[in-house]
Structure formats: structure tokens, C-alpha cells
């Protein structure tokens, strides 16, 4: 590979690191966008079949061209900037929403060594970048200068920050066990232990010792991305479409992309942090990226399944779950894990 690229590298000269990085970034974003596009289709199909419908089936064979048609439609829609809006912020809102949901992928490892930036503070970077997400929402809601977006964005912001706390505590637990902020190290640390030696390595992944944290993390992930049943933000019966009411065309599409990119991000993070990333679940099968893809797809299916199954939460219930259930549980579990690590029963020595 290196040898093959040598002439190309010489052609670009000193700008080669930049060009090569850009190529790698495109290699992440392009498949991601395709995944996002087909996730929307998958969502409609899955929910359709769960409700004994067929879902989109007109555009292309089995409706496979539906996402492309949707994209085209949005592209050719007029971008409306309401007269009362703060123009600059109004445009900035969707940009602030999409950028963090992409940037976070910089540190996600897809396989051993297959990561764009193998930084040693990866988890911290993720926490920082995902916190930025809320700015897009709140800027959009404020800039629209319209009631529904304003109320929706207040709700969204409060909800997102509330669940970020429990997510943060879950991350602390993972961190305690793996003793590294590097995501590759976190995955590799799951590939050892008694069950791993018995060939049942899926039992030595973090999800088992940290089961409550795993559950909290997945649920918080759903809440964090404002997905059903936590989607009061865009509860159409109350605040129409929340912070996105005034957006149309591509500016709306960016919010849409950001939401789905975030879903995939949360799923892949769950796989990396709790489900052993690219590690094979059993000893006799080789590790590889396909395992990560499979695990991520499974988590994504849970996202869709939850949407098809659960009715929407009431807002006060959402806040109660976040502040009065998840935070005590996660706090206690941090202490439990710390004590467990110090006790003779520790499985992480």
C-alpha cells in the first residue's frame, strides 16, 4: 500500500499529509452518508413491517432508490430564512448540528489500527464533541425567533444535557476498567479475561460487568439523539417539529443528517465501549471490522424497534428518568465498580 502510494505522495510533495488525511476523511464520510441514507429507508421499512405494512416500495426495486429521491427533493426545495430570524445564527444552526456529529468519527476505531486519529484522549474528545451537539439545537431555536422552535429547543437542550450526565458517568465506569482514554485500548482491554480464555470472549466484554451502565448508556443514547420515545422535542402534537420548524430544504436536511449520523455514532460507540468493538464473540472466529458493523447494526435495530414499540414519553417523565433514576444508578455503579476493582474479587488485574 505504502509503496503503491509513493509516486502519488511525491506528486503532492509537502501537502501530501493533508491530502492523504482528506482522502481518509472522505473514506469515512462517504460510507457514513450512504449508511445514513439507507438507515432512513431501513427505518421506514422496519417500522412498516412491524406495523404490518410494506413501507416505501415505489422508487426503484423494493424502494431502494427512495433515499436518493428524498435527497434530491430536499436539494431542490427553497431555503427559507424567516424575516424575524437572526440571519447569521439561523444559517449557523444546522452547521453546528452536523459538524460535531461528523467530527466525532475522527477518533472512532473501526479495526485494530484502522482509525483516523489514534489520539490518547479519544474518550474525552468524544465527550467534548458530543456536548457541542446541543449548540446547534439551541442556536437554531433561538435564531428562528418563532415560538415553537424556541420552546422545542429549550426542551431539547434540557433533555440532552440531562442525559449527558448519566452518559458521562457510564463512560467513567468504562474508563475505570480499561484505564485508558484511547478507544483502541478500550476495545483491546475487552479481549482478555477468564471467559476469553475459555473461547467465550463475548462474556468478557464490558457489557456484562457493567450491565446497568450498558442499559443506561443505550437508553441515554436514544434520549441524547432525541429519538422516540424521547422525541418530545419534535412532538408534533405540542411543538410541531421543535427547533426545525422554520427550516426547509438543505438547511433542514442537515439537521436530518445530523440526527441519523448521531444515531449511528451512538450505536458504534456502544459497540466499541461495551460490546468489544471489532472483537469476535467466540474464540474460533477471527476478529474483524464485520463484527463491529454487525454489532452497530444490532444496536441501530434497537433504536428503530424502540420507536415502533413505545409511545412517546411525557416531558416531566423524561426529566424524572434522567435526574432521579439514571443519575443515582450511575453514581452508585461508579462506586461499586471502584470498590470491586480494589476488592480481591477484581477481574481486571
Amino acid at each position: 500500500m505504502e509503496a503503491m502510494l509513493e509516486p502519488v505522495a511525491q506528486f503532492f510533495g509537502p501537502t501530501w499529509p493533508l491530502v492523504w488525511t482528506l482522502v481518509k476523511i472522505v473514506a469515512i464520510i462517504a460510507p457514513l452518508m450512504i449508511c445514513v441514507a439507507y438507515l432512513t429507508l431501513a427505518e421506514r421499512k422496519v417500522i412498516g413491517y412491524m406495523q404490518v405494512r410494506i413501507g416505501p416500495n415505489r422508487v426503484g426495486p423494493l424502494g431502494l432508490l427512495q433515499p436518493i429521491a428524498d435527497g434530491m427533493k430536499l436539494l431542490f426545495k427553497e431555503i427559507i430564512v424567516p424575516s424575524g430570524a437572526s440571519k447569521g445564527l439561523f444559517i449557523l444552526g444546522p452547521i453546528l448540528a452536523i459538524a460535531p456529529s461528523l467530527v466525532a468519527w475522527a477518533v472512532v476505531p473501526f479495526d485494530e489500527g484502522l482509525v483516523l486519529a489514534n489520539v490518547n484522549a479519544g474518550l474525552l474528545f468524544l465527550l467534548a464533541v458530543t456536548s457541542m451537539e446541543v449548540y446547534g439545537v439551541i442556536v437554531a431555536g433561538w435564531a428562528s425567533n418563532s415560538k415553537y422552535p424556541f420552546l422545542g429547543s429549550m426542551r431539547a437542550a434540557a433533555q440532552m444535557v440531562s442525559y449527558e450526565v448519566s452518559m458521562g458517568f457510564a463512560l467513567i465506569c468504562v474508563l475505570l476498567i480499561s484505564a485508558s482514554l484511547n478507544l483502541t485500548d478500550i476495545v483491546l482491554s475487552q479481549g482478555s479475561g477468564r471467559f476469553h480464555d475459555m473461547g467465550l470472549s463475548f462474556l468478557s466484554w464490558n457489557w456484562l460487568p457493567l450491565l446497568p451502565m450498558f442499559v443506561v448508556f443505550v437508553i441515554s443514547g436514544i434520549a441524547e439523539t432525541n429519538r422516540a420515545p424521547f422525541d418530545v422535542v419534535e412532538g408534533e402534537a405540542e411543538v410541531v417539529a421543535g427547533h426545525m420548524v422554520e427550516y426547509s430544504g438543505m438547511s433542514f436536511a442537515l439537521f436530518f443528517l445530523a440526527e441519523y449520523a448521531n444515531m449511528i455514532l451512538v450505536s458504534i460507540l456502544t459497540s466499541v465501549l461495551f460490546l468489544g468493538g471489532w472483537l469476535s464473540p467466540v474464540g474460533f472466529l477471527p476478529d474483524g471490522f464485520h463484527w463491529l458493523a454487525l454489532k452497530t447494526a444490532a444496536i441501530l435495530f434497537i433504536f428503530l424497534w424502540a420507536r415502533a414499540t413505545f409511545p412517546r414519553f411525557r416531558y416531566d417523565h423524561i426529566m424524572r428518568l434522567g435526574w432521579k433514576v439514571f443519575i443515582p444508578v450511575t453514581l452508585v455503579w461508579v462506586i461499586v465498580v471502584a470498590v470491586w476493582m480494589m476488592s480481591p474479587l477484581s477481574i481486571w488485574r
Partner: peptide, 26 residues
């Protein structure tokens, strides 16, 4: 961290370009 920096710029660009594109073709 260099790729991260580049990614941040690309991420912002990914937000700006579609809006400009939408403004042009729509």
C-alpha cells in the same frame, strides 16, 4: 491531532456546502 483538526474543517465545510448548493439550485 492533525487529522482531527482537518476533520473539524471538513465537518464545517460539510455543513456550509449543502446550504450554498441548495441556495444555488433551489
Amino acid at each position: 491531532y492533525f487529522p482531527v483538526l482537518v476533520f473539524i474543517l471538513v465537518g464545517l465545510g460539510f455543513g456550509i456546502v449543502p446550504i450554498l448548493l441548495g441556495r444555488l439550485v433551489a
